[in-house]
Design a protein around this nucleic acid. Sequence first.
DNA 1: CGTTAGCACTCATCACAGCAGAGTGCTAAT
DNA 2: ATTAGCACTCTGCTGTGATGAGTGCTAACG
Lengths: 338, 338
Amino acid sequence: MDDRIKTVLRTLIRNFIDSAEPVGSRTLSRLLDIDLSPATIRNIMADLTEYGFLEQPYPSAGRIPTEKSYRFFLDTCELDMELSEKTREGIEQRLMKKKGGLNHMLEEATRIISNETTFTGLVSSPRLSEARMRRVDFLRIDESRVYVVLITISNMIHNRIIEVSEELSQDFLDQVSGVLNEQFSGSLLSEVRSRMVESLMKDKDAYEEMLAQAVRVGKKALDLTEERELYVDGHFHMVEGFSGMDSIRKLLMALEEKMTIIELLDQTLTTPGLRVRISPSLANMALQECSVVASTYGGKDRALGTIGIMGPLRMDYQRVIPVVDYTARMLTEMICNQ
Amino acid sequence: MDDRIKTVLRTLIRNFIDSAEPVGSRTLSRLLDIDLSPATIRNIMADLTEYGFLEQPYPSAGRIPTEKSYRFFLDTCELDMELSEKTREGIEQRLMKKKGGLNHMLEEATRIISNETTFTGLVSSPRLSEARMRRVDFLRIDESRVYVVLITISNMIHNRIIEVSEELSQDFLDQVSGVLNEQFSGSLLSEVRSRMVESLMKDKDAYEEMLAQAVRVGKKALDLTEERELYVDGHFHMVEGFSGMDSIRKLLMALEEKMTIIELLDQTLTTPGLRVRISPSLANMALQECSVVASTYGGKDRALGTIGIMGPLRMDYQRVIPVVDYTARMLTEMICNQ
DNA sequence: CGTTAGCACTCATCACAGCAGAGTGCTAAT
DNA sequence: ATTAGCACTCTGCTGTGATGAGTGCTAACG
């Protein structure tokens, strides 16, 4: 594709992003650095339309970019990832205040990212399997139930009630948790689970029967069925970013299918770092009118979760991307250095 | 106020609730059981308008009810609190599934109430001060920080990190939690806090200094600064219930000021049971276009939290109220009997 | 005196027409 | 290859009736 054509396309996209209105050849001619008459631009635009980069809402309106255009724009624009001192400090300080409880920090991160981008903020909680265990405790509730409290290195707390078929004493439970804590504090939970059996085996003092019990409890306690959470903030930005009542309604509905959204975000997790998804298709529905900018947080090698925003296709990516990126980095830093 | 006038008003309100359109004298005449000509009804309506019960969107449109009307309607309509077998079972079973983790149960309750009423569901988590303690544990993180895990009788888990000025050993912390658990398991948290000092005093074996430390830790750990949570579900119902883009935006914004909404809901807590708030005024903003139907859950004497919905003034109260009421009762039952 | 019929009046809503403006595609000239 | 010119298309706005729902008032009625 010609270099001049690219410039025209980029200018058109940029203009559409902040005007939200179809762009005509005249406007474009005025806007461009190179001197080109509207007629020439019309020819270029006709070509671009044919290639599938532009659309006309109706004959004789200006052109608007298609999804393809946004993808092109993202691939070719060079991003300035630097944020202003002020923004950086603001983000850092807001996060710092919530240091301690990870859940509060994630909540605040969601809010920050929503505020700073003026789009709806999304954060998925860490995947248990990728987390490192700090400590696990078992509290006996009654003859058939045990309360499990699992604390990760990053101070995320997970709790669940497990049903046990035989009665277990608190003493016994303490013993099991004692062994697990001693052996595995700091290990990846997925490892703990796989290496648990051999570790408990070592404790030769235990009776056969008790050992079996211990393993059963441990397995259930560390069941990694992902109990993920989704933090959402800035629902109202959907009203600003989209125009049709119906699409707003659909998007708000989609946001409440938390598991589906988490799956969507998780697609980012496979490759650490930032990723933009233009009109992603979900399990059953398609979010055709929106795009998601998301990044992983929580360690380079093993991403724990995702932080990002959801907004209309025509968002100012050059402004949004650095914010998402920086917030993800800050979050990672604070989670790892504590 | 005349009996006949009341009937007219009630009929008008009912009609407006499901048509959402101004009601005229003609329609009303057809709808009423009593035989009255449109002219007579016009006279009645003129009076009602003067009393402040009705409004005209513009001269020569029908009339619409004012807030005052809705209040009147609620005061005088007799409610049938019976739900269909099917609805009751549905609610019960959905709640039952999530029994165990209170947070999951509250989340599900929010969703249920939103689904069943087709309005936005709201649930505030229990007030710590009104909860009974099951168990408290202290986990040493490092020389200056201690992780506190507090489990209530209803299996709500609260955790926080407290900063301590002197280094404390895990053994010492276990000792403190041991005493607290022994002495206070089952007590109201507010009591625990006030009676903690004397209780620790009894343990004469402890050194003076350690005692002081223990009290300091205990106080911090049981700081009842309410760490409340707000569960919201069914944001998209706002789009259906309200018409103006701008009011939808404002309401969605209001919902994200979690603390403000919790305060609003808490006004229900003073008197146990169900309460309807017509266009409630909040801290700074006024939610003039909406009403909140909420009830307390978690014990008659000591309400723990609130469950309810938020929707437009013109909602079908006769349908919504029983649902909120029943769900609140079910929730209470499940929390108390476990 | 309460109730009703009749009538004039007020607005919103809708359809239709006409006009200005923006933008296009095509053709022919540069 | 680029541009100027021109005919054409379509939206958006404005204005004009016409329609219809609904009112308020007055006068008649039982």
